[in-house]
Computed example of a mutant assay.
Amino acid sequence: MKVDRRVTFLLRRIEHDVDREQAILEIVKVLKEKQYAFKDICTVIEKDIIYKIKVLNTIGIGCFLNDEYDSVIPFLEVALRYSPTDPDTIYNIGYVLTKIGLYEEAFGFLNQVHCLDEGVLKLKQQIKAKIINLSPIE
């Protein structure tokens, strides 16, 4: 499917922090209404966006905050492919997994990635405490 210029325009607004929140809402809307697919948005990001990781993270979290859950992890995974050590992406994936109750998966993911970012380390501690509290007492 060919993506119209409007999507490119919205993605560039996100990239350059121009009416970012409104642009995020419009991107989420086209995804929810199935006007464009995840891969269509990624194609535009690949071809037309300079700060790909920033835009992918922003859209992923925007989808999470606006109940478009099917798109959250895929956008964050693409960001992770561009930069496997990006602390924002690592944190965002761990955070989303935690918020949907996948504590073990979040902790496992964060343990696989060697990231010394303070936010990531704090999130790991919070998840570990949550896992310990959920464990049955023997």
Rank of each mutant, 00 (worst) to 15 (best):
I127H: 09
R5V: 03
Q22M: 09
T43V: 04
V44A: 00
I131G: 10
E77F: 04
P74H: 03
I53V: 15
I45W: 03
L80W: 05
T98D: 06
R81K: 15
H114P: 00
Y82K: 03
K39M: 08
I49D: 01
I53R: 07
N92Q: 05
E104D: 11
G60V: 13
V96W: 04
L110Y: 05
Y51A: 10
K122T: 13
V44H: 00
E33I: 02
D117F: 10
Y51N: 13
E68P: 01
G62R: 05
V7A: 02
V113E: 07
I90K: 01
K52F: 10
E118V: 14
L134N: 13
I14S: 01
S135P: 02
G108D: 14
F64H: 04
E68C: 14
Y36V: 08
V3G: 00
A23W: 01
I45M: 10
I93C: 10
E33K: 01
I100C: 06
T43M: 05
K29Y: 08
I59M: 04
V55M: 02
L110G: 09
Y82A: 05
P136E: 08
H16S: 07
F38D: 12
K2L: 02
K39R: 13
A106R: 06
E33D: 12
K34G: 05
K29Q: 12
K99T: 12
V44C: 00
G119T: 11
C115M: 08
L102A: 12
Q22A: 12
L116M: 13
D48A: 01
K34T: 10
F107S: 14
L10K: 00
L97R: 15
Q125R: 11
P74R: 04
D86H: 15
D19R: 11
A79M: 04
V72T: 14
T8L: 00
Y91R: 08
V44P: 01
T98C: 09
I41K: 01
L123H: 04
L65E: 15
Y91T: 08
P136L: 14
M1W: 01
V96L: 07
R12N: 01
I14Y: 02
E26K: 13
V72R: 02
F107Y: 15
A37S: 12
E33M: 07
L31W: 02
E118G: 14
Q126S: 11
L123G: 06
K122V: 11
L56D: 10
Q126Y: 07
K128Y: 06
L76R: 10
I53N: 12
E104Q: 07
E138N: 13
K130Q: 15
I61P: 02
L134V: 03
G94M: 12
V44N: 00
I132F: 13
V18P: 00
Q112C: 09
E77N: 12
C63Y: 04
V44M: 00
D48Y: 00
K99F: 06
D70C: 07
L97T: 06
Y69H: 10
T89P: 09
I50G: 02
I127Y: 07
L25N: 06
T98K: 15
T98R: 15
I59V: 15
G108C: 05
L25M: 07
E104H: 03
R20E: 11
F38W: 12
N57L: 05
L25C: 03
I93A: 13
A79V: 03
A79W: 05
L102Q: 14
R81H: 09
S71P: 03
K32Q: 12
V72W: 04
I27P: 03
I50T: 11
